[in-house]
Write a protein that binds this DNA or RNA. Structure first.
Length: 720
DNA sequence: GAGCACTGC
């Protein structure tokens, strides 16, 4: 039925988004340097350089709203540098939510400045530091600046801190905002040398002012009259509501910068679509058959959905007339091997059109060139967290307005585009303005541990831009107390709490390392927590299910998943050792490890990540004076250590083969991916609790129930 | 006998 897509074509109502400025690039034959200068000149932000610098001079806190393409991320730091904000060796710090962004922007700015990366312009991300003592413009991930604050609580090296992409509201961004607000207050107080009393009088002395003041006083407990220069704070956001940020910073000034280079037509359906996947398919073919050249980007919720739409598009392409079959389907999600991800970036063969089926990854993390059409069914898979049960789940929910805007913006990067929203226009107005910030839907143990280490004792009173629920805070405080990180009066314990705060890991994993040091199995635990900290290590493609299972069996341990992970890690390390012995070239060794991963159905990216974490954490624990000892063949010792560390996650088998988690009394099941799925031991500890079709627990090891009262008497002695 | 959006230290 070649005309099928045509006959079922949807009508879309049309609304216009405000037109932006069109940016033209210089001729291709110009030298690169001239071209860069030309590009800089044409950025919307360039014409307002003087005004912007003036605004920063006048305002301690400034909110800049500018859409992608305005040039704010690359240009503003250079403007400020040229205006003298780095005098006395001070640094301008710019945070990004993602590593790739920090690196690519730094490279670009170094090139624009004509300097070598790592000199005047540099970047710093986990596992990678491209800065030096001469670095003045420093791009970094937000999480890294947070870590830096642990060593330098007043961020004294920085004259300006710019929080970029603040609208994304990552946990790190939210914690940083609260922290920087305090740091700024402290530093300006130290400069003005006003006594706290005078300061109180000077401000209008409202209750709110006093509260904030008291809080910043408690934060400053380590501050003994040291003199600091004031800190300039700039919040950059792409979302239209600067109001939230402005209110949070006491009515801070907000300025807008023109940005969007090309207009995008937004089209809605007349009626709600009962089946959004079918509507997606129809729209894909409607665009393919009726619209001009340009690739299509479709936003779907997950891998499974993408794979099924991929099959359906391919089936229906075959039903088209021969001349119209020039449609190339490309899936895109994070767990896809990178060679396959690269397909999306290669241009489609001439005279054909690409349709990219992507998850959220295409919303912010990757920018795919050539996109002219966006199809947005208006749904997203989001993580939610129940602090009472500790249960994590993934649910499909409508996007926010901000997300819908971000998605449509993907059509206007290189020329005018179109976005097809697969819902009626009145539905758009019902969407929430912005996505619920992550801090309101995650386990707060790590955040609290960090804040405590920064001297913030009153977590419930901390000035979050949006406060997490009291229950979420209390539950995490309780967990940290049970792990021994906090004392009876909820202060950071010494040394355990301080040691845990130093390690960039989930608090429960940090605790496991501290215990492993006492149990003489730190080597095994170091590998375990590194492997537990990354995405799934095992890779099971649907078409090679049996082979993958067989490969996995070689690593399986009857004791459970933790030992299985240790075996995998050691096998890969031994392989790498052998290759390096044979020919000591690092590059060949790397390639050989990739090959080993493929043969053994191991996810190469995850394993490399685990190796990075392993070496970073090993450095930390050695600095803390721990000795990385192995328990050798004494697996009993290692399992006892696991029980001592993860006692909060113990479960007992019930007569029907399900389990009961001891801490929350929830009924749970062993996930089929566990090596203990069939064995079903009487008593186990686990690391993950995820709700999908059932309440599943993952990463499990068999333990002796008698170990619990023995190793965690503070928790189990009073219970049965 | 299942299925996992995306980041980050």
């Amino acid at each position: 039925m070649p005309s099928m897509a045509h006959s079922e074509a949807r009508d879309f109502t049309k609304t216009k988004q405000p037109n932006g400025k069109i940016v033209k690039n210089g001729p291709k034959d110009e030298s690169r340097r001239q071209k860069i200068a030309q590009q800089r000149k044409s950025l919307p932000i360039t014409s307002v350089e003087r005004q912007l610098v003036e605004e920063v001079r006048k305002n301690d806190t400034l909110i800049i709203v500018g859409e992608t393409g305005s040039g704010k991320t690359t240009q503003l730091p250079q403007f400020l540098f040229n205006a003298g904000f780095c005098r006395d060796g001070k640094v301008i710090g710019i945070t990004q939510p993602r590593r790739v962004a920090a690196v690519t922007v730094a490279k670009r700015v170094a090139e624009e400045c004509g300097v070598e990366l790592g000199q005047k312009v540099g970047y710093s991300i986990r596992f990678e530091d491209a800065t030096s003592s001469s670095t003045r413009i420093k791009y970094m991930t937000d999480g890294l600046l947070l870590r830096e604050a642990l060593l330098d609580p007043f961020l004294s090296r920085y004259s300006v801190v710019i929080i970029d992409e603040a609208h994304e509201r990552t946990v790190h961004t939210d914690v940083l905002l609260g922290l920087l607000k305090n740091v700024q207050k402290t530093r300006s107080q130290s400069t003005s040398q006003m006594s706290s009393l005078e300061k109180m009088k000077a401000s209008n002395g409202t209750v709110l002012e006093k509260d904030n003041h008291a809080q910043s006083q408690s934060f400053q407990k380590s501050y003994h009259g040291t003199k600091f220069s004031p800190l300039k704070l700039i919040i950059m956001s792409a979302s239209l509501d600067a109001r939230g940020f402005s209110e949070y910073f006491g009515g801070a000034r907000a300025v807008h910068i023109q940005g969007r280079p090309y207009p995008v037509d937004i089209l809605y359906t007349h009626h709600a679509e009962p089946d959004y996947l079918e509507a997606t398919l129809i729209t894909v073919f409607q665009i393919h058959l009726e619209e001009g050249p340009g690739d299509i980007l479709v936003f779907l919720t997950g891998q499974e959905e993408i794979e099924s739409v991929e099959r359906l598009v391919q089936e229906r392409v075959q039903q088209l007339p021969e001349g119209s079959r020039n449609l190339l389907v490309i899936p895109m999600f994070s767990s896809l091997p990178s060679e396959q991800q690269m397909r999306a970036f290669r241009p489609a063969p001439s005279c054909s059109r690409k349709v990219i089926l992507a998850t959220n990854i295409a919303e912010t993390s990757v920018t795919i060139p050539g996109i002219k059409y966006v199809i947005d069914p208006g749904l997203v898979k989001a993580r939610s967290y129940n602090p009472i049960t500790g249960m994590e789940s993934l649910i499909i929910i409508p996007t926010s307005k901000a997300q819908a805007l971000q998605r449509s913006g993907r059509a206007g990067r290189e020329g005018p585009g179109k976005c097809f929203r697969l819902y009626p226009e009145n539905e758009f107005s019902k969407l929430v303005d912005s996505t619920v910030p992550e801090i309101k839907r995650c386990n707060l143990s790590n955040v609290i541990l960090q804040l405590k280490a920064l001297g913030v004792d009153d977590i419930i009173g901390f000035d979050f831009m949006e406060k997490p629920s009291r229950m979420a805070i209390v539950k995490s405080l309780e967990q940290l107390y049970l792990l021994g990180a906090l004392t009876d009066d909820y202060k950071l314990s010494d040394p355990v709490g301080h040691q845990m705060a130093r390690l960039p890991l989930d608090p429960i994993y940090s605790k496991a390392l501290i215990l492993a040091n006492q149990f003489n199995c730190l080597e095994e635990m170091l590998i375990t927590v590194a492997m537990l900290s990354v995405e799934s290590i095992f890779y099971t493609p649907r078409e090679k299910l049996e082979e993958a299972r067989a490969a996995r069996k070689c690593f399986s341990s009857a004791e459970g998943d933790h030992l299985t992970l240790v075996t995998v890690y050691r096998a890969s390390a031994e392989w790498l050792e052998k290759v390096k012995m044979a020919n000591n070239k690092d590059k060949t060794a790397e390639r050989s490890l990739s090959k080993w991963c493929k043969e053994n159905f191991i996810n190469n990216r995850s394993l490399r990540h685990a190796r990075d974490i392993h070496s970073q954490i090993q450095g930390h624990v050695e600095q803390m004076g721990f000795r990385v000892a192995s328990c050798g063949d004494d697996m009993l010792q290692f399992r006892r250590c696991l029980a001592a560390a993860f006692f909060l996650n113990a479960a007992l088998r019930q007569p029907d083969g399900s389990y009961r988690a001891l801490a929350s009394s929830q009924v749970v099941q062993i996930h089929p991916s566990s090596v203990l799925f069939r064995t079903k031991p009487e008593c186990i500890i686990f690391n993950e609790l995820v709700r999908t079709n059932h309440n599943y627990i993952r990463n499990i090891t068999r333990i002796d129930p008698l170990w619990l009262p023995e190793l965690a008497p503070q928790y189990y002695a009073t219970q049965n």
